[in-house]
Design a protein around this nucleic acid. Structure first.
Lengths: 149, 149
DNA sequence: GAAATTACTTGCATTTTACAACTAAATGAG
DNA sequence: CTCATTTAGTTGTAAAATGCAAGTAATTTC
């Protein structure tokens, strides 16, 4: 419990590098933030602009412009919500799905490579531990939320 | 092994938020990157500008300017190396040490809060797992290095 | 049906970023 | 020794990212 911060700092930094490397996957030149946006649009069910911005902890005005450039790149689509016309539903275009899939594949290859340096028991322990950590962070009132906790 | 990417994505994002919240600690208005720089200068033994830049995966020209602003804020000191006068050794000023300590305290409080939602066995398992993960990432040739792998 | 709220967009002005080109010091080859 | 090369670090842009303030338009509330 002494050097936990150091362990976590190093781990998150390395995963950061991992994400960074992934981004030019699929022949597209995608920034780190853009890959996160594609990932979240894909993961969430028909999210609004607001929802994704909050998930990523990005200021809504910044995020609005980020979406604009992804639309220009023809990776993301904005559809007005039927029941509330203030809201825009985000989705991936065919091209966007392709890029997201390419990044996902690349990430999975990296993760497989990392986990190949462990035995089966370790692997399961590590994955279970990450789940535990996520649950614990979810329970914490002090931290781990976008902007203040 | 199915949703590992998702687990890790969520975990790192949350730790990202955690770091972000920490930064205004000590009455100073410190950016996320600046707090990482302070942390690394503190952790490494008399690092050069080059060394810290590489650790953080930041372009050297960008990093040079980041150091300049930290020096202006009187948090960091630049000392010419005695044996090689091209090199500048970085260190924290008294104020810088104070800020770094304040952030560290805050981070530890957050981490304690997170781990308070686990029992002793889980806690040890999780910490051991992060160590395993770090070792595995260190061994991987494919990923987790600054700029390309 | 007017006031307040919500979702999103634009206008700046600031900050961040990185490539190219620079200085200065150290190393290395002949 | 000396001239070419490499290394550490700094600027000059110029482009991109950021966020506050202020705006529009749709919805909710009272």
């Amino acid at each position: 419990m002494e050097n936990v911060r150091e362990l976590i700092q190093i781990m998150t930094r390395r995963f950061g590098f991992l994400n960074k490397n992934c981004c030019s996957a699929g022949g597209f030149d995608i920034s780190l933030i853009q890959s996160h946006i594609l990932y979240e649009i894909d993961r969430q069910h028909q999210p609004s602009i607001q929802q994704v911005a909050e998930t990523l902890g990005t200021d809504i005005t910044t995020f609005s412009r980020q979406i604009q450039s992804l639309i220009k790149m023809n990776l993301v689509k904005k559809t007005p919500d039927v029941t509330d016309r203030r809201i825009y539903i985000l989705s991936l275009t065919t091209e966007g799905k392709f890029v997201a899939a390419a990044i996902d594949e690349q990430m999975k290859a990296y993760l497989n490579d990392i986990f190949s340096h462990m035995n089966e028991v370790e692997r399961e322990t590590v994955i279970r531990s990450i789940q535990l950590l996520n649950e614990a962070m979810g329970k914490s009132r002090l931290c781990c939320m976008p902007s203040q906790g």
